[in-house]
Design a protein around this nucleic acid. Structure first.
Lengths: 214, 214, 214, 214
DNA sequence: CATGAATGAGTCTTCATTCAT
DNA sequence: TATGAATGAAGACTCATTCAT
């Protein structure tokens, strides 16, 4: 049976905020770190790392530029937190969509569908992750971004390992082919158009599963 | 039978000068524009659009910064030319690799292999094209980049149209799936490692053609 | 006979707190001020007044930056205390080395030797004093630093006054010449090399006492 | 015979300016590099390296801050040029004051007098050199400053080598003692007061030459 | 007394671009 | 056409200091 209409709740960002009893702290000010992170995610998603200035980010929070540095010691550090948070949200959504009891193909469809669903629900997170994948950042930052990505791809790796594939298929290449198909949807897929994200996810998985040649 | 060992010559950049009416432009002009374009391609590929300054480019040509503006009226204009040239070279390599007389599957394998071969031979061009695909640039520039990309994808579109696919396959999605797989190789494929570019191209095409599920 | 091997104990910093009426200030106050002063001495000595930030100082004590301002109302005030303490320690070492019963030339040798010995034992204090001597600080701070220095030079003034010098020597100039020789050792003298501090002190005094010309 | 009243012309800074035919170039604008260097010397002398901002320097020239960087690639580079120029002027004045035909003691008096005369004529240069001698700057800059100083002290080294001193005197220490006396005059000597620079120079040399003890 | 957070002016530096010569 | 110089806004980041809690 193929995955049903994504019945599980989708994860939203909590940008590292402690539970915060909203009853008492009405103005919801508090927690400037979270406010900054939120703003930074939006700005980085729109204009990228290089195209976004600390001033931009500060301006869209009301905080002064200098104050950002109390919470994040550099622009790179801030971006790294943004990237990690993006990966965290996307990963959580993917994981939440997987029914651990289902068979591997179903689980893969669920994962792929959830991946695409992020485009609709949290395109900022996807922008940040995909947008920076292709620009090699120098060492200290660059390596941390790669670690984040690995922690995400791991979920797919595990499923692909347990897939019943024909014996001469290289599972690494197979997985990377799928991830490429999925990542590229960022360039062309509109989840609000004719085909919804979950169906598109199943279709893409099906392409690698079945014979498409007549 | 799969495609043979890519026997056709690969295209190198002629740095996209317009046909150049040499009668009028006799004086030592010839090269300047080309020299700048060459340097710009290298720098933009290494450090991206935002990470590259006009000074960087000027410095690696011996030309003074101010002089750049005689040949290109802005940094965006220069980048646009660089992007167009990159697309032109990659397209030409793909086209040159296709045997027009071969059957569609073979032609597709030839195109995919040639695409990947660019990673080995002209990674700068690929860096520029892929690296900027995910960053939405504002209107005047952004739209021109999309046009360039379309002019490249066209070659794949034509082949995919003539492919004998099972009837319920959406050829648009099928093509975009393939292009995604290919584009993503930029992130993981090392053409100098175990598997050469042409074989990898055939393998990726095969994944979409055959049944991989056991 | 020249001064013997500096037998008197050398003074260490008690980080210049006022006598501290412990009856009133009972609570764990005792150390804080001293801890800050210690850290500040080290940092100012290493990186100078301008090169040291209040944050640097706070960081090397575990105290938070804001808390420094309870103990010292400004950076200048803190530096002033550091400078005063440095002068106090150096002065105390010089005074302790002088045998009040000895003749003036011996006393001068003892003082000079002790001065140089500070380079070996407490180079931080010397760094602070010498390093700031040549930078004219604006009025309120600047004048206090000069007062500190005067309180130190006084010890030499007294000895020089009682020296049996040839009648046409200007004792002021003579003293300043000696102090210049001594101060400048900060630039070139290594107390851990061939010649120890006490011998170097005697040699420098001897140069002004005897005829060095053949 | 001791040195006469410093008959040789004193060197002024030409801050690296090419001869510049002042007849044609009336507004004497031209040569912004020289203008910047002049202003920088003044500011650095007054407030030191750390206490002077590039804005300060730009403001006192009418040039915009950014423009400074066309002529000097960093603040350190600018300071280094300032320091080198200061050493150059002082050295030239010292050299110009020395009569190569005179005997060593006379030559030393001439050199010392000229050294002190700089305090009256070009105290900015002296401020820069002396003021930075006591602050250890990190490697790239620091080492260059030391080289500059060495190139100055060399003039004294040569004279001291040829001095007829009693045999057991260490000429290195002797020279450093003299240089210390001279450098320290920056702290106390007022060349416009009772004793003029040339006489003070001879007196200080005399102190190391003759027996001052009764 | 101590803290965490914020402030806002200030730091050096880089940039795309322009323009007289 | 090419150049050298200048521009001025913008970049990331630091700092001494303050203040409510």
């Amino acid at each position: 049976m193929t995955a049903s209409k994504n019945p599980r709740p989708r994860i939203k960002s909590r940008v590292g905020r402690p539970p915060s009893n909203d009853l008492i702290n009405a103005p919801a000010d508090q927690d400037r770190r979270g406010v900054i992170l939120d703003a930074a995610i939006r700005r980085f998603a729109e204009t990228g790392f290089d195209g976004t200035s600390m001033r931009d980010i500060a301006a869209s929070t009301g905080i002064l530029t200098g104050s950002l540095y109390y919470h994040f010691k550099s622009k790179e550090e801030l971006f790294c937190a943004v990237h990690e948070e993006s990966i965290r949200v996307i990963s959580a959504n993917v994981v939440a969509a997987i029914d651990p009891g289902a068979n591997p193909w179903t689980r893969l469809e669920q994962a792929a569908s959830a991946y695409l669903q992020n485009l609709a629900d949290h395109s900022a997170f996807v922008s940040i992750v995909i947008g920076e994948t292709h620009r090699r950042r120098p060492a200290p930052l660059g390596e941390r971004l790669i670690q984040h990505r690995d922690s995400f791809e791991k979920h797919f790796t595990e499923i692909v390992e347990s897939l019943p594939l024909v014996t001469d298929v290289d599972r690494n290449i197979w997985r990377l082919a799928l991830l490429g198909m999925l990542a590229w949807t960022y360039v062309w897929f509109d989840p609000n158009a004719r085909i919804p994200a979950d169906e598109m996810g199943r279709r893409l998985v099906a392409m690698l599963r079945e014979k498409t040649s007549a």
